[in-house]
């Protein structure tokens, strides 16, 4: 009886120690930043924006051997960056839920953009001479007619790095740099995509 009680206490202690060590190696980062509106010429079109749950609640969980487990919450930063960006790029933006658009929005909007975060990769150095946390990410933008026909899709990527100090803060900074790069690419190159160019010309007529 006494032996089994001791064993239970030992098991509990071991469990507490094990969970403490696991928690101690887990890093959680919620990407936080403010994204400025782009200083670009406004495109004379009205677009609907679809931000589905996959994007607004985007979360990545990665276990790196011999290092730690990383949980990165990127959802709210995704929405904040893309919404601010599109608001600065177009004459008018509006959130929409589904395609094809309902009759109310059908004639009020010129197109709909669906954004997706396709890939997110990062590297946090463990030892050696590497001094930077690096992040690479790729979004996929899909532009639709209000009726639901796909006009074009465009993968757009961004890279960011930040000097290693506090690992979580450095990862946050590198992610923000990568997101700003994505924003820079979208705001300066969106209108130059061949199909988008044609779509814009059609709308101008």
């Amino acid at each position: 009886m006494r032996i089994s009680r001791h064993a239970t206490v030992l098991r509990c202690l071991f469990g507490v120690l094990a969970s403490t060590s696991v928690v101690g190696c887990a890093s959680v980062v919620t990407v936080e930043a403010e994204f400025p509106p782009p200083l670009v010429e406004e495109l004379p079109v009205r677009v609907g924006l679809i931000f589905d749950e996959e994007l607004t609640e985007y979360e990545i969980f990665e276990k790196i051997p011999r290092q730690a487990t990383w949980t990165i919450h990127l959802g709210s930063a995704n929405e904040l960056m893309l919404r601010g960006l599109f608001e600065g790029m177009f004459l008018e933006t509006r959130s929409v839920d589904v395609l094809p658009l309902t009759s109310t929005d059908l004639y009020r909007l010129d197109g709909v953009i669906h954004s997706e975060l396709e890939k997110f990769e990062f590297e946090v150095p463990i030892t050696g001479r590497d001094e930077f946390v690096e992040v690479w990410m790729q979004y996929r933008l899909r532009l639709y007619e209000p009726g639901g026909t796909l006009i074009t899709e465009w993968p757009v990527s961004g890279y960011g790095k930040a000097e290693l100090g506090n690992k979580e803060e450095a990862l946050n900074r590198a992610t923000v740099v990568a997101m700003r790069e994505v924003g820079a690419a979208i705001s300066t190159r969106f209108a130059k995509q061949p199909q988008v160019e044609y779509w814009l010309q059609e709308r101008r007529r």
């Binding site: 400025p36 509106p37 200083l39 700003r180 790069e181 924003g183 820079a184 705001s187």
Partner: peptide
């Protein structure tokens, strides 16, 4: 203020 013109790329 000058975003995105002074981003690295």
């Amino acid at each position: 203020k000058l975003y995105p013109w002074f981003e690295p790329s």
